[in-house]
Design a protein around this nucleic acid. Structure first.
Lengths: 248, 248
DNA sequence: CGTGGTTTTGAGCTCTGTCAAAACTGGTGG
DNA sequence: CCACCAGTTTTGACAGAGCTCAAAACCACG
């Protein structure tokens, strides 16, 4: 796998953009020093595979910037995305030797990696790291269950609207966009990746996006840039109750 | 909610059937004594609701015997099961005040409940409880992701075969049935509950069960009792690779 | 032997998948 | 600057898996 080091390899945890959200959120200065000793950065280009399911994993880590996906594949090639990883999300499972899913960079990606064994040792000595990881894992489980409702019971149109709403919400939270005006952002996924996310074919994804555009639920500039004129309208189309059962 | 106490209210943790698998698996005698002070048993009859989504939760706990389900419901009534809870599985989320899902007893059910606040305090003092809960939560997340593949990409026939395989496997592990002969067990779910599990209608569930019976993948006595003459054949029908990517 | 709940079966329809072709996009090289 | 190319996206025509609505069969229970 053709990795190359990130430009900011000697990055200081103090300046890290995910400092307060990642698994290290509650570490003090001394603990961060300890982490610095076992950490390193890796960069991946959009489309690169980070890990193949079944591969030996010698590290765990956090997404710093960019987006990655977890996917499962059946023997005959049917694929289902089972995780969407945004900055601060954790990759890998302490205590398990091999990766359970394919991890792919869907945009250019920077990961903060910890050598696995030293990290596991540190988790045992530092309970609040495990506690933070438990919180994050419970959040992921909630997201997975919301996603199960989508996969099992929503129509194609509702699935697309839900996905757009999720991405809009995440984008707003990352850019700290508190404005009440129309949301605007880029879809970070290809039609095919959306299809893998939603349990649809890419043709159906394309047709439903066109339909939502025609009905003015979303506005498109080019293929990827989206504006949401009325977020509540979008949530109605998604079949969510208005309070918003978030997907992460 | 019309609860009544279990007959073995003064049950000793030492005799507990889930002693070595539940969240308390690694507790020593002193810690068990501490748990005994904050624990109590509750029984539910098949069909009873344990908790409604949104309800205040004053306890967390473990399934001791029986089976419970987690379900989500959309406003228009579409339902999706998002969790299947067997003995030793954990219910509730430390640190969250309200339940996120409906919890229902699908068979007669006994739960070992811990008062929430004291349990959270004990978790902070006793890191291995949190560590055990993290392990269990990671397992549940894997199960949820396997389930997402099922919901998003499998055919109705594959879904049914997968569900039967999961239940067979769990039943075998609970009864410690090491025999290599034909597996035999009862389906603990109604056709409707299976439909909610699999993202299908109950009619489709019924038709596909009939089809699997006609093709001799499964043998039925009555509506509920199942025999699997050839487990590998069942796994093929489920679309799983033979090594068995388990659902829990 | 009714009664209510569960399960099966049937007939028709719709949504989504499949297969195929065209349109669009950005990049490369002549 | 234009032609070409590969990858992505859109559009079309058709088929089929699973849903809907309806009725019948089955089952446990009083």
């Amino acid at each position: 796998m053709d990795l190359h080091n990130a430009s900011f390899n000697s990055h200081d945890c103090g300046d890290c953009p995910i400092r307060h959200r990642a698994v290290c959120a509650r570490c003090d200065d001394r603990e961060l020093e300890e982490l610095e000793k076992i950490k390193y950065y890796r960069s991946y280009e959009a489309g690169q595979t980070v890990i193949w399911s079944g591969d030996q994993m010698d590290f765990v880590g956090s997404v710093v910037t960019g987006i990655a996906t977890l996917t499962q594949t059946m023997e005959d090639g049917r694929r289902q995305m089972v995780g969407l990883l945004l900055p601060s999300d954790f990759v890998g499972r302490p205590g398990r030797p091999a990766a359970a899913y394919d991890v792919t960079a869907t945009t250019d990606l920077v990961m903060c990696c910890f050598r696995k064994k030293p990290f596991e040792d540190m988790m045992l000595r530092t309970p609040h790291i495990g506690q933070r990881l438990l919180e994050m894992t419970l959040d992921e489980l909630d997201a997975a269950r919301e996603w199960m409702l989508l996969l099992g019971r929503k129509t194609a149109r509702e699935k697309i609207a839900s996905l757009v709403a999720i991405i809009a919400r995440r984008d707003a939270s990352l850019t700290l966009d508190g404005t009440k005006g129309p949301l605007t952002f880029d879809l970070p996924l290809t039609r095919e990746a959306m299809a893998d996310y939603l349990g649809l074919t890419l043709e159906t994804v394309s047709r439903q996006i066109s339909a939502l555009k025609r009905d003015e639920v979303i506005v498109l500039e080019g293929k990827r840039h989206v504006t949401i004129p009325n977020f509540d309208r979008l949530l109605e189309e998604a079949g969510d109750d208005s309070d918003g059962g978030m997907l992460v």
